[in-house]
Write a protein that binds this DNA or RNA. Structure first.
Lengths: 240, 240
DNA sequence: GGATGTGAAGTAGTTCACAGCC
DNA sequence: GGCTGTGAACTACTTCACATCC
């Protein structure tokens, strides 16, 4: 566990493509669950809130996997996306801070999936340390840290930098930071930020500045309005 | 409350700019709190994980507000960003689903800020309805819904579409959806998705495919490696 | 001197349009 | 006929480089 090695895989995928592939994957899996045996780029695009062309471009980056005239086979698509995103590689995750957010994450059946393995939980609150959450006993963060590849920070902003330092010293290579606080890490360590307040601000900006009655949100991912020929008439999706 | 009207404001800001302005704002506010009277684009960029040029371009979209040779005045910057993002306009927010995530959001001092006003809380669990959270008594979602501009969905995926329909029927114009589920809404309604699992997958993709020993994450927002001349030596920031 | 603001260049991503194959 | 895969065009965003002003 925890071995995430660099793989010489298909061509490098673009940032927008990487963020869309998990969405396609969920769509495709729901079709598999419904017993569908075919899906085409228009259908995926409609559900994901992007154009069919974008879907085809994204999928073309994974190699040739469709059939001209007949679309894609869902099971092949799902496995190829999983491979591209590295879901076959298992890696350890530690979660720091078990307030409501930390609890929500570890108890969710939708968070630690696709290769992620919960290694340990940490907090510094004596009322929390020692309790069991999601099958793990919460340990004191000031003690030894289990080896893991990714650390999830659910601590207050004021504790974010020190917590990150501690994780990096313990060998963590990637940090998912839910604290609204920029943190510094050594070169070679990746940080990805999730900031709820910013997401809400982005949404309201569009609400305030939406153009006209049906113009609405115009977004790199998810479009609605007269200038969007191929889109579903009713879905104004926007993924960040 | 709840009146979010379209304003004829400065030129339309680009999507990446919109997502960076809240970050700049937090940086600038922390400088104000520390009593600083000047800040320049290089300093903001270093803390935000972007180049100084990008910062200047973003800020130029808000009008001329710096002083050549001397940088920006933090208080002016903060108020202009607030204005551009519409923080002077107050709007109502309802939260649906008060599991751990919903509780984490409404109890956070960093979520409902910048014009957002919590209007009401809803759930359908009889054990939750009637309890008080963050100063509001949780109401039954199957009853009448308070007028609000934005709805925050913290419900299970299976309930997401029905909940969204209910919110839209009640007049909600924007939905922040934390359920990993695509939802359909009428034209004119905006949906913004936040999916924790996808954020984790993006992080691990970069971990798996990082190029070389110090190459690491290369991202539209936050760069590290040899090809990044101006960046801080130690911050590999990546906002989505 | 020093940092802003911005044309110009460069790069990345999306969309068009259609050839190719089933 | 239908849908994929992709060159070409287009659009969006970033970065360079420097004129401009304090």
């Amino acid at each position: 566990m925890g071995a995430v090695t660099t793989r010489l895989r298909a061509r490098k995928l673009s940032e927008p493509t990487i963020s869309r592939l998990p969405i396609y994957q969920r769509i495709v899996e729901s079709w598999i669950a419904r017993g569908e045996t075919r899906i085409d780029s228009r259908q995926i695009g409609e559900l994901a809130g992007v154009t069919a062309t974008t879907v085809r471009r994204d999928l073309a980056g994974l190699g040739t996997l469709g059939t001209r005239g007949a679309g894609y086979e869902p099971s092949l698509l799902a496995s190829r996306i999983a491979e591209a995103l590295g879901h076959d590689l298992h890696y350890g995750v530690v979660v720091v801070g078990l307030g409501n957010l930390g609890r929500a994450l570890v108890n969710s059946s939708n968070f630690l999936i696709r290769g992620a393995q919960l290694s340990a939980l940490y907090d510094i609150d004596p009322a929390v340390v020692g309790t069991e959450i999601a099958g793990h006993v919460v340990e004191d963060f000031r003690g030894a840290i289990a080896p893991a590849t990714v650390g999830v920070l659910c601590v207050p902003s004021s504790a974010a930098q020190a917590s990150a330092d501690h994780l990096v010293a313990a060998g963590v290579r990637g940090i998912l930071n839910f604290a609204p606080q920029v943190i510094s890490v050594p070169l070679g360590t990746a940080v990805h930020y999730v900031d709820f307040s910013i997401e809400l601000q982005i949404l309201t900006y569009h609400l305030n500045n939406g153009t006209g009655p049906l113009g609405g949100v115009l977004h790199s991912l998810g479009i609605a309005g007269p200038s969007a020929p191929n889109m579903a008439k009713n879905a104004e999706a926007a993924w960040h």
